[in-house]
């Protein structure tokens, strides 16, 4: 494994550790964990038993180590509501969320990047203006407004699609559309500017000057060079997608992680919230590692040195 990937891996592990510590600190700051985790009306002997079991009478650093050990063994505690293991509860919801986020990400990539590249190659055209308009749209319209407007139009007025629930593939259409439309615009706008910047570089002019067909200039010289910043943005979009899932799943009553975290936060079901936090952080860190890996494949210069963000 190249050295810079090792460095990245070490940093990823450090980040996970930081997220764990964050959860620990916030949990301790919010009050007595026994009270918080068991609920305010837990009987005193249950609280005492909990304190003894989790070593809450030990010094703080010992508690911290115990907490880390516990997490390392994939023990995230039990849900306050139905006392099933938190991890189980979260994992059961993952497929539903993936069923929305993966198609949404694919749509963003498959429509956004080609549209942006096309706009860059046909500047000032109608398509170019369209890309810019769509990106402004993506930046300014919050997903909850877009989602509700889509429901209002396609479910309430036209009655073409269901407004919520999960009972067949057509239930996923509106949520996926809500998640991807803005992102398509943003990715297209970004791909467009990355491409325009690359097309202005001297090596493109050289390639053109030596008589290379325009198609080869674009495919062999411009696109690979524009790819690095675009991949970076796609990496960031994974995070935005997860955040978007929270809102979109709530609007469409979609039984994924996003819905689960909102419900758990409202109920203060802390074990579940903490578990979701770590699962999401882990997947974000994985996504970032993949992006770094893609860098190495795309840009030989970055194989030796760590790329600056």
């Amino acid at each position: 494994m190249p050295r810079f990937l090792l460095t990245k891996f070490a940093r990823a592990m450090l980040t996970i550790l930081l997220v764990m510590s964050f959860a620990f600190i916030v949990l301790r700051l919010s009050g007595d964990p026994a009270q918080v985790l068991l609920g305010p009306d837990a009987p005193q002997d249950a609280v005492d038993a909990f304190r003894a079991r989790w070593g809450l009478n030990d010094p703080l650093w010992q508690q911290y180590l115990a907490y880390l050990r516990q997490l390392a063994a994939f023990d995230f505690g039990v849900s306050m509501r139905d006392h099933s293991p938190a991890l189980q509860l979260v994992m059961d919801r993952v497929p539903a969320t993936l069923a929305l986020t993966v198609p949404a990400l694919m749509l963003k990539i498959c429509i956004g990047i080609p549209a942006g590249v096309y706009a860059a190659l046909h500047r000032e055209s109608v398509a170019d203006r369209g890309v810019i308009m769509l990106s402004i749209f993506g930046f300014t319209i919050p997903s909850f407004v877009l989602g509700l407007v889509l429901v209002l139009v396609f479910a309430v007025k036209l009655d073409w699609l269901p407004a919520g629930g999960q009972d067949g593939w057509h239930y996923a259409i509106l949520p996926i559309a809500t998640m991807s439309i803005g992102g398509i615009g943003i990715l297209a706008r970004f791909s467009r500017s990355a491409m325009i910047e690359v097309l202005g570089q001297p090596y493109i002019r050289t390639a053109m000057a030596k008589g290379l067909p325009w198609r080869d200039v674009v495919w062999k010289h411009a696109l690979p060079n524009a790819a690095v910043p675009i991949v970076t943005l796609v990496g960031f979009m994974v995070g935005a997608l997860i955040a978007g899932a929270v809102v979109v799943e709530s609007i469409f009553s979609w039984p994924g992680i996003g819905r689960l975290i909102v419900v758990s936060v409202a109920n203060r079901d802390l074990a579940v919230v903490q578990c979701i936090l770590l699962v999401i952080a882990a997947s974000m860190v994985m996504a970032n590692l993949l992006v770094d890996f893609a860098y190495g494949a795309l840009d030989p210069r970055l194989r030796g040195a760590a790329p600056g963000r």
Partner: peptide
């Protein structure tokens, strides 16, 4: 490292966690 941490947790999720605790 703090910036990495911020990048690893979507802000929405972090906010939800804090609001859940406090």
């Amino acid at each position: 490292a703090l910036a990495d941490f911020q990048a690893a947790l979507p802000f929405m999720i972090m906010s939800l966690a804090v609001l859940a605790f406090f």
